[in-house]
Amino acid sequence: MKLEGRVAVVTGAGGGIGRGIALALSRRGCNLALADKNAQGLSETSGMIRGVQVSLHPLDVTDRAACAALPAKVVAEHGRVDLLVNNAGVAIGGTFEQVDEADFDWLMEVNFHAVVRLTRAFLPLLKQSDEARIVNVSSLFGLIAPPGQTAYSAAKFAVRGFSESLRRELEDAGSSVGVTVVHPGGINTDIARSARPPRHVTNEEAALIASEKDRFQKFLKMSPVKAGEIIVLGIEKERPRVLVGGDAKIGALIERLSPVGYWNILKRSMA
Rank of each mutant, 00 (worst) to 15 (best):
R193Y: 06
S211C: 01
A206Q: 08
V179G: 10
R239Q: 09
K226E: 12
I187W: 00
I231N: 05
L140E: 07
Q149K: 14
V135M: 05
G234L: 01
V177M: 02
A227C: 00
G148K: 07
L140R: 06
T202I: 11
P198Y: 00
V159H: 00
V182N: 00
S153G: 11
V244P: 03
P197M: 14
G142P: 06
D214A: 13
L166H: 03
E229F: 09
N136P: 07
P147K: 13
E204Q: 13
A252P: 04
A252Y: 14
V181M: 09
A227Q: 01
A207M: 10
S163D: 10
L253N: 06
K221N: 05
T202E: 09
P197I: 09
I250V: 15
V232H: 08
A248L: 05
L208I: 06
G251K: 07
I144H: 07
T180A: 12
F157Y: 15
I209S: 10
I230V: 15
V181A: 11
S194P: 02
S163I: 13
L253K: 14
A154C: 05
A210C: 00
V242Y: 10
G174V: 04
A248H: 13
I209M: 08
G246H: 02
F162H: 15
I144N: 07
R193P: 08
A155P: 11
V177H: 03
E171F: 05
G185N: 02
F219S: 14
A248T: 01
G234R: 04
T189L: 02
E204T: 14
V201Y: 01
L253Y: 12
L253M: 15
E205C: 12
V181W: 13
H200A: 11
I230G: 02
V232G: 08
G174K: 04
F219D: 09
I231G: 04
I209A: 02
E164A: 07
E212D: 09
V177L: 05
L243K: 11
A252C: 04
K218R: 14
